[in-house]
Amino acid sequence: MKKNIFSIGKKQVRVPIVQGGMGVGISLGRLAGTVAKEGGAGTISAAQIGFKEPDFYENPIEANKRAIHKEMQKARAISPDGIVGFNLMVAMNDYETYAHEVIAAGADFIVSGAGLPVDLPAYTADSDIAIAPIVSTQKSAHVILKFWDKKYKRTADFIVIEGPMAGGHLGFHKEQLEEFTPDIYGEEVKKIITVVQKYEKKYEKKIPVILAGGIYDHADYERAFSLGADGVQIATRFVTTEECDADEHYKQTYIQAEKEDIVIVKSPVGMPGRAIKNTFLDKVKSEGRIPPTKCLRCIHTCNPAETPYCITEALIHAAKGETENALLFCGGRAYEAKTIETVKKVIDYFCSSCI
């Protein structure tokens, strides 16, 4: 079934798939560039992106800024004209610094969640980069779009709706995760789209709506469009691809996971998150707290004296394949992964007829 093709900034996507940003180090230049080459929009995660730099622990900000350019160059080498952007977490310290850096690196868009990116328009005002908030409820969509309208006289270039089956940090209270069945959340998606349409009318522009969270098979893909979405964001399916930047041991945790291994955890960022149960989570539960080896002051909501563990440390272990000492973020259906695929095969599975 051919889907509506939309634009991100000045570029038109060929297939209605945005690859979700996954950090630390899971979606970098190779994955994002390959997705862009195949006609989708590739997303590099800026979260502690410089963790491989030799001076990361001594000078994390400079290491991250340097790595932003390196990963963007890597993506552009794979897809010179494709759509490549960055995911920036609002909860990061130095958020504004990184926003300016991804613009300087030549990114096509910034998608931003883990909080509401209230001042992102100010940080990007002198550029033509496309900006998109990640929202999960009608309330959050209303708050951010109203704020941007009133304070900055502008609106989103596209919007990502991230549902309760998503991986990593989730924009819901624990009670909402239990409350939102697929049917009930489908109604919430329609309410969010109604909010978006208000600003489409006011600004006389199309604001593509991208639905994310649990998009794993063709039925999910079709359902997203039936709810009124213009495209889908897919992350978990891309982890188990040859081109994913994650260590092979990390990819294998998805393939080996059973349904009961997928659990909701409380992140040091202050949000619930979805991850694969392992010895690290068991240790956190039994010991109550694993003190950080070194605090990088990376998350402004984190108190290093009280945090149950250092999320940067735990995610770096994951990216390096040290899976039993790591936080293994994943989507709600990660256990369905059975083999390593290619990005092309995943995209062809969803929409070979879109191009």
Rank of each mutant, 00 (worst) to 15 (best):
A122L: 13
I311W: 00
G23E: 06
K277R: 15
A229T: 12
A334E: 01
Q19G: 05
K285T: 14
K191H: 10
R66W: 06
D245H: 06
A212W: 00
D247H: 15
A235D: 11
L315H: 11
E58S: 15
P133T: 11
Y57R: 13
E313C: 04
I215E: 03
T137W: 01
E71Y: 11
S353G: 10
E58V: 11
T155Q: 09
K251R: 12
Q256G: 00
A125Y: 06
P80H: 11
P208M: 06
T241Q: 08
K206R: 13
R237T: 01
P164Q: 10
A104D: 14
G82W: 03
R66P: 00
V13P: 02
I129T: 04
T155I: 05
E336G: 00
C351W: 02
C330D: 03
E322I: 15
T181A: 10
I144A: 02
Q73G: 15
Q252R: 14
G167I: 13
C351T: 15
F172V: 05
T342P: 07
L170Y: 01
M89W: 06
K174E: 14
M22V: 13
I131F: 08
T137E: 03
G82K: 09
V239L: 09
L281E: 01
Y335G: 01
A219F: 10
V239Y: 04
F51G: 04
L211P: 11
F158V: 08
G273D: 09
T124N: 03
Y335F: 15
G40P: 03
V346K: 10
H218T: 13
H142F: 13
H100Q: 13
K10H: 12
K251E: 06
D55F: 12
D261S: 11
I8E: 07
A334P: 07
L327P: 09
G21N: 06
K206F: 03
S79W: 02
M22C: 01
I215R: 00
G9P: 12
C298G: 06
T43C: 11
T137Q: 05
Q197S: 09
F109W: 10
V15Y: 04
V118N: 08
D282E: 15
K174D: 12
M72F: 15
P182Q: 08
L211I: 10
V195D: 09
S140Q: 12
I110N: 02
H317E: 15
L88T: 05
K294H: 14
I68R: 08
G50H: 08
R289G: 06
A32C: 10
T236V: 04
T34M: 14
D247R: 08
M22F: 02
F280W: 04
K345A: 15
G332K: 03
Q197H: 15
P164V: 06
G332E: 03
T339G: 01
V35A: 09
N64I: 12
E58A: 14
E96N: 13
V143Y: 12
K206M: 11
R154N: 11
G25M: 07
I26H: 00
G168Q: 07
I17C: 04
G106T: 11
E179R: 14
K259L: 01
K285M: 08
T241L: 07
A130I: 12
L328P: 00
A104Q: 14
F172S: 08
E260A: 14
E248D: 15
E204G: 03
K190D: 08
Y123W: 14
V102S: 05
F350V: 06
L31G: 09
